[in-house]
Design a protein around this nucleic acid. Structure first.
Length: 453
DNA sequence: AATCCGTGGTT
DNA sequence: TAACCAAGGAT
């Protein structure tokens, strides 16, 4: 099998992003006037039987009227295209119908997703959408089931402690989401009578709920015609409409939202939005999309111009910074000192063994005296590992030590047995450190540990 | 507006 | 395998 060499997908990232060749004027297709606003099934049907309406198109920020998919519409790829949409139907209507038809046969089943005619529990949608932010479906499912088992209703969640919520969130990452979801539940109980709001603006007012999440909840839980724009939708739109601008550039995000709003089906907005995301996750994938099974292939400009592997473009990212943290396992009478992290920043409100962040080894003694009020015994190296986050590569070094003097400062932590630490919410590096302590607690002498550097 | 916030999956 | 990406939001 011959694999043709493909150009790298991220052209913007590969080279210097400073100078991009001037691009032809930008054009984004949008719906004709008649399809804007709160559409209905009747409106869909009416337009469907009518004449192809001219499309409004956005060119360099100015709106004009053009015929859909004609050579005048998208200057980025002016060659004539074999577009095979039903000429009696606007492309938006064709796209909606094709996508919903595909979704009815290929849509995924999920614990929080109930197929028509029944609809999902709005509380379940709220919880799932909070968990799904920047997190894949497969990762979320087990967390969602455990979470709903622990907090079956919004009242249960509102009444829980933040520690309980964080403990169920442990391992999912972006722990601020847990705090926001918890507070959102409390406000839903006190301000909305225990009912997840149906109104997008009321949803937007909840902590942790942005434009995407508000649209997702309104459309999926209540079938309100609210648009969504997530990574999947942005990718599908960029390819389907051949949009060359970086999808994560603020200037283009506005236009993607506009496009998403006008494309969202009036009759089944919840299913339409989920269909776009399923399509992006299952067919129109970031790499090697399955165009042969794509229900939108007929309309796809990226496919017609053989640019599927080029789109969507993204802005270049900053390289993560590398830092070193020292974890101190301070033992006293079979227990270890643990403390809660600050309420903001990395692993906010989670617990940890005292960890000196970006402190050189020869400063650890002074650090412990200042932060904990303790004089440390000899430092015994136990483990070292690296941990990746989005913006940092953290090199962790784990040391076991004892208390040689001093008195623990107030609020600096508490002493716990290793086996009792799993009651506390912990980030992954701390879990690993505690597991190392457990594995080596009966062999405190020599170990194939890192040499201190 | 640019940066931060976690972890796991994919190629 | 290193880079990219994921049902984004807050500051």
């Amino acid at each position: 099998m011959i694999a043709p060499t493909r150009p790298k997908a991220k052209v913007v990232n590969a080279a210097q992003p400073v100078k991009r060749p001037p691009r032809p004027e930008r054009t984004i297709i949008a719906a004709p006037e008649g399809e804007k606003g709160q559409g209905t099934e009747e409106e869909d049907n009416k337009t469907r039987s009518g004449v192809t309406p001219p499309f409004a198109a956005l060119r360099d920020g100015r709106w004009g009227r053009f015929f859909p998919f004609g050579s005048t519409c998208l200057r980025a790829s002016p060659q004539s295209l074999p577009i095979c949409y039903n000429p009696a139907m606007s492309p938006f209507l064709s796209i909606r119908r094709s996508l919903l038809h595909w979704y009815d046969r290929n849509g995924r089943q999920m614990p929080w997703r109930v197929r028509r005619p029944g609809r999902a529990d709005p509380y379940h949608v709220l919880v799932s959408e909070a968990m799904l932010q920047q997190t894949q479906v497969a990762t979320v499912i087990d967390y969602f089931n455990r979470f709903i088992a622990a907090f079956p209703t919004v009242e249960h969640l509102a009444a829980a402690s933040e520690q309980e919520v964080l403990r169920l969130w442990q391992g999912l990452g972006y722990y601020r989401r847990a705090k926001h979801l918890h507070r959102a539940a409390q406000r839903i109980v006190t301000e909305h009578g225990g009912q997840v709001p149906r109104d997008v603006n009321a949803l937007l007012d909840l902590p942790g709920v942005g434009r995407y999440t508000a649209g997702a909840i309104a459309s999926i839980a209540y079938d309100v015609r609210a648009p969504i724009l997530d990574g999947n939708v942005a990718r599908v739109l960029a390819r389907c409409f051949g949009i060359e601008e970086p999808v994560d550039a603020p200037a283009t995000r506005k236009q993607f939202w506009q496009l998403a709003e006008e494309l969202t089906a009036p009759s089944r907005p919840g299913d339409f939005n989920q269909a776009m995301m399923d399509l992006g996750a299952m067919v129109c994938t970031p790499r090697r999309p399955s165009c042969v099974t794509c229900p939108l292939a007929r309309y796809c400009r990226a496919k017609a111009t053989d640019r599927v592997d080029e789109l969507p473009r993204t802005l270049p990212r900053r390289a993560p910074r590398t830092v070193t943290h020292h974890i101190l396992a301070i033992e006293r009478g079979g227990r270890y000192l643990v403390q809660q992290r600050p309420a903001s920043g990395l692993w906010a409100n989670l617990w940890q063994l005292p960890t000196a962040e970006e402190v050189p080894i020869d400063g650890l003694t002074a650090w412990a005296a200042e932060q904990l009020g303790l004089q440390l015994g000899e430092l015994q190296p136990l483990d070292r590992f690296t941990h990746q986050t989005t913006h940092r590569t953290i090199r962790f070094e784990l040391w076991r030590t004892s208390v040689a003097g001093g008195r623990l400062k107030r609020g600096a932590g508490e002493w716990r047995a290793l086996d009792d630490m799993y009651d506390l919410p912990l980030g992954n590096p701390q879990v690993r450190a505690i597991e190392q302590l457990q594995a080596k607690r009966s062999h405190p002498k020599r170990s194939p540990s890192p040499a201190p550097t």
